[in-house]
């Protein structure tokens, strides 16, 4: 009997298609590594496979930030076992909301090696978050606090900027960020993060993107929540919302490039606003 080659070829392809679909369903994984499920939930399990593919080289197999590339990166990749996150909508010391983590991995972290993972399907990003939360028991033991409300932004004005400059002076922002915001304050070179690595205060005059988003609301939130794990404190108790908006306007006045930067139109950055 002679089988026509086309038929043979197509059946081989179809068989591999069938096995492909079947085992994809078994593993519930698309482009991640096939990993043992253990006690993981389905999203965590999928997330683990994806984490192995995308994140492990920096954040490490154990999520402790000691991936093979960690020695070459500054700032260091986050140690997820500590569950300390810079970009949150929640109060200082609180866990972040899932939506905070989602926004961060979508946007990437400016001025660091952490890329934007916006190209990954949204489900993959959610599953990754489910998995990185398994590295710390805190996510089982505690609930993240509520998102701190961000009041409507009053219009920017010369007066508001001036008041912001005064606050910058009074609150000693300059001791770290420098008189003109260039990140060269008197104590700048002594600062370390919570893992003991030297850290530089943000140069407020560069670009228009911050680690935790680019919009005025993002900036407001940074000042409100602080960046946990870094010397950058929360000012929510010390300053009233109006004062925080004044500081935001003052910081914008330092950014000579603000608004001209093509990157400001960047992909994921927009997702962060309004949280």
């Amino acid at each position: 009997m002679r089988i026509r080659p086309q038929i043979l070829y197509c059946s081989i392809l179809l068989i591999s298609l069938a096995t492909g679909v079947a085992s994809a369903q078994n593993a519930g994984a698309s482009s991640g590594y096939p990993v043992a499920q253990g006690k993981l939930t389905e999203p965590e399990h999928r997330g683990k496979g994806l984490y192995r593919r995308y994140c492990v080289g920096c954040h490490g197999v154990r999520g402790d930030g000691n991936g093979e590339n960690a020695p070459y990166l500054d700032p260091k990749p986050r140690d997820f076992t500590q569950a300390t996150f810079k970009c949150r909508s929640t109060a200082s010391g609180s866990l972040p909301l899932d939506s905070d983590l989602y926004a961060t991995i979508t946007r990437g972290i400016h001025a660091s090696g952490m890329p934007s993972w916006n190209p990954l399907p949204s489900r993959d990003r959610s599953d990754l978050i489910a998995y990185i939360k398994t590295f710390s028991p805190r996510f089982h033991e505690e609930q993240p606090g509520p998102a701190l409300p961000i009041p409507a932004e009053p219009p920017a004005s010369a007066e508001s900027t001036q008041r912001g400059a005064a606050v910058f002076q009074d609150m000693n922002c300059w001791s770290c960020h420098g008189k003109d915001g260039r990140g060269n304050g008197p104590s700048a070179h002594t600062l370390t993060d919570s893992r003991g690595y030297p850290i530089t205060p943000y140069d407020l005059t560069t670009g228009s993107r911050f680690k935790c988003g680019e919009s005025d609301r993002d900036l407001f939130r940074d000042l409100m929540t602080g960046l946990d794990g870094t010397p950058m404190p929360s000012f929510t108790d010390a300053l009233k919302p109006d004062q925080l908006w004044d500081v935001v306007h003052y910081i914008r006045s330092l950014q000579t490039n603000h608004g001209q930067d093509g990157e400001a139109a960047m992909v994921g950055s927009k997702t962060e606003t309004g949280k």
């Binding site: 995308y54 400016h110 001025a111 660091s112 890329p115 934007s116 990954l120 990157e263």
Partner: peptide, 19 residues
């Protein structure tokens, strides 16, 4: 390439993370 790599290529070999 996967979608992350395709985006990287389409962005002109850039991650747009300012590095």
């Amino acid at each position: 390439l996967n979608s992350f790599g395709q985006t990287f290529k389409d962005e002109g070999y850039q991650l747009n993370n300012d590095r």
